[in-house]
Nucleic acid binder design. Structure first.
Lengths: 213, 213, 213, 213
DNA sequence: AATGAATGAGGTTTCATTCAT
DNA sequence: GATGAATGAAACCTCATTCAT
């Protein structure tokens, strides 16, 4: 934590992710964040305007990262199915690597009234629009059904991921051992993308995606 | 509001739905609820233990209503596709008739830390399990793919609805006129249920479901 | 409790004594009293003006009873020592028979700000004045030291009883078995009244006092 | 009040003593305390956990001070009578110097339900045990009657002081001018301690006690 | 007389943010 | 830039009392 290398802004953000994930945004106090970050209480306010701003910064930083990754995938010459696969793969890997961050993005960010500002919606929607673009590309190539509007498809795709991860994070009755998150990912793909079938193809797509990271 | 017929508990609950939907659970004060309900402040606390309890009562009452409806649909002799259709139809109609209530269920309830109690999870999961049962029935009848676990399918189905309604409620960039909610419903069905195609069949199923209400 | 014979006022008063003794005046609610009395909530207010009034009624009723008893003892032809003995005996017997009542009188009544009204002080002081009268009689008869003002003596006498009973009621470290309350009473007599010695005399005085009841 | 030298904790405590003495613990609001202390409202809660904690801190601080003083007196080579005299003198002088504090200790502290915790009883009882030790020393030296248990004697001694001060504080019918508190102190000594007689001896003991402070 | 639902005033405490060092 | 003590607004809930039946 008290990492001299890491800039203090990042230290605070990482600590906040941990604390938000543990207690929830509304239930934790700014004092908890400063303690977890091992910085002075008032230091928070030298790097962020407010508690809100910390949470929204977490969203913005990570969402922008996601968007950049999506952009790369979109511009690749993979098939639409592999593109979707690449995005799914990225999200689920993010969850595996940093479940706290994902928890915060999925649960705490949409909780915040201030999240629903035009600027944030714009950023938020860019992801849905990207998904829609890929879906539309698939429609044009005759891979996906044409009687579905791409934007609705993007909601369904995101909703599937969102709700599934929510279950992994919160549902105490859910047996994680029997349903490793990677299995869930594959099943969602199968359900949403009729053309998604062979494992070889998937493995190849994933490999390619990772190389491009 | 000051309805002599309606029991006071229901009056409070309806007022709370309105206030929660307008301002959000954390941003509204209990005083706002009592004013909206046109009852004395302390009356809230004769019918509910706390502000939390009001929100969770909204969830419990409506979720139980949803579960009862689902149970009826499950026990009908409709095909699994029509059963899913019936549930979608019920949820989307609920949204149309009482968008505030849906907003509260989708946005405020999962915000509340206290929501994640074993009792609530049990209630919450009964819906997913019901969806999974129908999906499994479809698998056994050879209608749905067998390489998807029913419980994951239920998450995807619910997530599709949840995220879509969320967009209808919150997204200011979203053009409601071009995407009436019924259209969204149909598109989600098409995306998730490969066998769902003909409009006649759907209309028939909906009719039957409504009659059975 | 639901005693048809006992007038309802007395039922409420007895229930209040029990509840006040258990939880303390400030920590119990009027609802607790009505429940313990098995009367309707609002019935309290047909017999008493307020919660305060209930507590003060307990004081007044019992204090008047004590005063009447003291008056009888004063007017007897016992020696001043036996008179004091009679009063001590009455108080300690009251504690043995109804510790809850004594607890309320000693702990809750003086807690109440409203207790310190001129009327109540007048009533309260009549007891001290009675004690002082007896002490003065003893001084005049050459039994007690003359260099002590009777009123101060009355405070000391009452304080001894008050503090001792307080210990019996509240002190968890106090070993009741080793110090039966009667032993305490005798020791206080010995300490305060130099002439108080022989057991026979005491027994006689007690007997006489009881007969006069 | 706004004393830069005095640590803020002490400022708050002194203000609380004043406010509690004036209005009583239950009748005053925490806002009154902060105003009297001329500190910000929330500052109370940086130094104390709660309103209760403020009152109990007043008790603990002053009681510990009393205990330390008693310990010194016990370890002196004064006679048991002079030791008791020293303690009486200290308590009555404390009352003269800070009647508000004494009022709070005698009236408000024992009001508080939370006062009756094992820890507080332990502290409280140390005073009674100290008094009992001195009384027992007097018994062993043949000064006090042996047929009185020291612990009961300690209750009587404390009760005498407690009740007398209570009268000085609260009784409106009591004529303070005719009974200066020092006179009361002497009379209590005469009543409780048969051997206590000569004024010269007393004066000497008091002098010695003060010197040793 | 008896009931219990309805009332609203009032107080403690929390916590994000600022300020003086 | 760093610190942490100081700040005060804001909100939930309790509870004695009244009122309508």
């Amino acid at each position: 934590m008290a990492d001299k290398e890491t800039p203090k802004r990042a230290i605070i953000l990482n600590a906040a992710i941990k604390v938000f994930a543990e207690k929830g945004y509304h239930s934790c106090r700014t004092l908890d964040i400063s303690k977890a970050a091992e910085v002075a209480y008032a230091s928070l306010y030298q790097y962020f305007k407010s508690k809100d701003d910390i949470l929204l910064s977490i969203f913005r930083d990570n969402w922008n990262f996601l968007l950049r990754r999506m952009e790369k995938i979109k511009q690749s010459d993979d098939s639409p199915i592999d593109k979707l696969m690449g995005i799914f793969d990225f999200i689920f890997r993010s969850y595996t690597q940093n479940p706290d961050m994902m928890k915060v993005i999925i649960m705490d960010v949409p909780r915040l009234d201030q999240f629903y500002s035009p600027e944030n919606w714009k950023l938020y929607n860019r992801f849905f629009m990207g998904l829609a673009d890929i879906f539309q590309e698939g429609q044009e190539k005759g891979i996906f059904r044409k009687d579905i509007s791409p934007i609705i498809a993007s909601y369904v795709i995101y909703g599937a991921v969102d709700t599934t991860i929510r279950q992994y994070v919160y549902n105490p009755e859910f047996n994680h051992d029997n349903f490793p998150i990677e299995a869930a990912r594959n099943e969602i793909m199968r359900l949403l993308i009729p053309g998604y079938l062979s494992k070889e193809r998937t493995a190849k797509a994933v490999k390619r995606t990772r190389k491009g990271a």
